[in-house]
Design a protein around this nucleic acid. Structure first.
Lengths: 200, 200
DNA sequence: TTTGCTACTGAGTAATCACTCAGTAGCGTT
DNA sequence: AACGCTACTGAGTGATTACTCAGTAGCAAA
């Protein structure tokens, strides 16, 4: 691994676990045994380093989902939705640092004024929601999913699984124990038709 | 408002919006027109100030929920669950800074080594989940909620609404538009009985 | 051998950081 | 008038911050 790559991955680890402001370039350099100025030689500034880290996170996340899409076969749309939810949670463990970084506030603050940052974040989130929505659409087509509002349901599903992934990486409570319950809930959401009026 | 209170609320606002590490005591002092040393006179250190802020957030959040519990009447458990979810989202707007702070990573990092911090966070989250669980239990008793695993369902509900609140305060997408969909989903989760085997 | 280029570094720098401290203004009690 | 106390401050402190820059080692082409 080149020194540039070492810096990139160490930065991901430290920015994710300690936060951007709480990680000094001196500390980062010391952690991998390079001179502090090497960081600035390769990346220009600390903020540009973060942007490069986000770019790398985007590449990795999309690569993982494309790979999953390519190799994993599902018998119906409902099963695919459930599979994707599981894969999301699995990824949040495999790419723990990346998800930790995505659950921090700093990147979203930066995104407000920095177009490059905004671009990476949007690409990542669009990828997630698109995949969920496509799986729901597939389910509607093959009959495994009832009549639901595709886009909105996909976003609710994403909200659920991302919230769970966040609690998992924050160690707030056991995500594994909750996952089964979430899947059961998702099945109810997707198999029951749109708002069967229950009043009076 | 005393200078001490001014410092406390300005700290909440700045810690929530800029982050703990990114808010300097000099900036905080300047924002409210007091000497920087006044902060240390009242709170001792920057970290102790954060702990005091979290204590205040805890007091406010619990007060709001107790008030809501006291004045709001619901005709059945299911309706109460839905009401609580709406109230949670409403609160995340009214107490935006507090929720922003609770959605940051720093307090949870601090909680690992600081008992006082851990205590405040646990009190807040326990309050939420307890209320949701009680409402679910009420629903089971009055028949508006089907046979479900109370605790786990309550946690899934909390995961959903907290995720939505987070996206709302991060301005990722329109929470209002998603809320109706979430309520519809919650109704499906709570009114359909436990896992009716759908295989083959 | 000279030249040019990339990768990298140690020694800086000004600015900012959290925090300290001696001192004071105001006010109630004796 | 003297005292004691609380609230508050301005002027510091040494440490740390992101970043700069002149210089060097190594290697490839001329």
């Amino acid at each position: 691994m080149t020194k540039k790559e070492k810096i990139l991955y160490a930065a991901l680890r430290l920015f994710a676990n300690k936060g951007f402001a709480d990680t000094s370039t001196a500390e980062l350099a010391k952690a991998i045994g390079v001179a502090e100025s090497t960081i600035f030689y390769h990346f220009g500034s600390k903020e540009d380093l973060l942007l490069e880290v986000l770019r790398e996170v985007r590449r990795e996340v999309l690569r993982h989902f494309e790979e999953h899409e390519r190799v994993q076969a599902y018998s119906c749309g409902l099963e695919k939705v459930e599979g994707l939810l599981g894969f999301y949670l699995y990824l949040s463990g495999v790419m723990e640092d990346a998800f930790l970084l995505l659950h921090r506030h700093y990147p979203y603050m930066l995104a407000r004024e920095n177009e490059v940052c905004r671009e990476q974040l949007e690409a990542i989130y669009n990828c997630f929601i698109e995949l969920f929505e496509q799986a729901v659409a597939l389910g509607r087509a093959d009959g495994s999913v009832a009549d639901v509002r595709q886009r909105k349901v996909a976003m609710v599903l994403f909200t659920m699984v991302d919230g769970l992934a966040r609690f998992k990486t924050y160690n707030l409570y056991d995500a594994g124990a909750l996952f089964d319950e979430m899947i059961a809930s998702v099945r109810k959401i997707l198999t029951q038709p749109l708002s069967p009026r229950t009043d009076v």
